[in-house]
Structure formats: structure tokens, C-alpha cells
């Protein structure tokens, strides 16, 4: 099954793990499964309208899903989904 990996800033919300095994044929299915397993993740990944928050970026292996088929990107059993937040300051 695909693996969801999160950056250090989000590990707190998945019991301090860096990865979780997820079910799903597409990225959105996998994210929904991850939220089922770790409900605290929902607030940090999805906004109140159910859309991915703007500062969250999703990769499948090393490709941003914006360059693939977005949330509908299909997953293979061996794929790794990576959630990354943007980093900024001043």
C-alpha cells in the first residue's frame, strides 16, 4: 500500500511518526484515509471548505501533484506521498 510521509512540522499530528501506511487509489483517497487514522491531521491539511490549505504541498514520490493530476493523481502500491509545508519568514 502507498505510504504517506509528512515533514517534521506535521509529525506531531500523526503520533510523532514520519510515515503512515494509507489505503487509496488516488491522492485524495489516501489523504482521507490518513485523516481517518489521524483525525488531528485534518485541521492542518484541509481548510473549512475541505480544500487543501494553501501552504501545504503534496508530492507523489518526487513530483508535485500540481504537475500530475492534482488530487486525482492515481497511486501505485509502492508510491510515497509526501506532505510539505512552505517555509517563510522575514
Amino acid at each position: 500500500m502507498p505510504i504517506l510521509r509528512v515533514g517534521p512540522l506535521m509529525r506531531y499530528y500523526i503520533d510523532n511518526k514520519s510515515e503512515v501506511i494509507v489505503r487509496g487509489a488516488t491522492v485524495v483517497d489516501a489523504l482521507q484515509d490518513a485523516v481517518l487514522q489521524h483525525p488531528a491531521l485534518k485541521f492542518h491539511v484541509f481548510d473549512s471548505a475541505g480544500k487543501i490549505r494553501r501552504h501545504i504541498n503534496i508530492f507523489v514520490n518526487d513530483q508535485n501533484i500540481r504537475d500530475l493530476q492534482g488530487l486525482q493523481t492515481r497511486l501505485d502500491e509502492s508510491d510515497r506521498i509526501i506532505l510539505m509545508a512552505s517555509i517563510s519568514g522575514g
Binding site: 517534521p8 504541498n57 508530492f59 517563510s88 519568514g89
Partner: peptide, 14 residues
């Protein structure tokens, strides 16, 4: 007076 690290750079560092 601002910096930005892109998600791609974040991933490279990770």
C-alpha cells in the same frame, strides 16, 4: 526583508 523556502527545496532538504 522576507525569505521563502519552496516546497521543492524543502523536499530536497528532507
Amino acid at each position: 526583508n522576507r525569505y521563502l523556502i519552496t516546497p521543492n527545496d524543502y523536499l530536497k532538504a528532507e
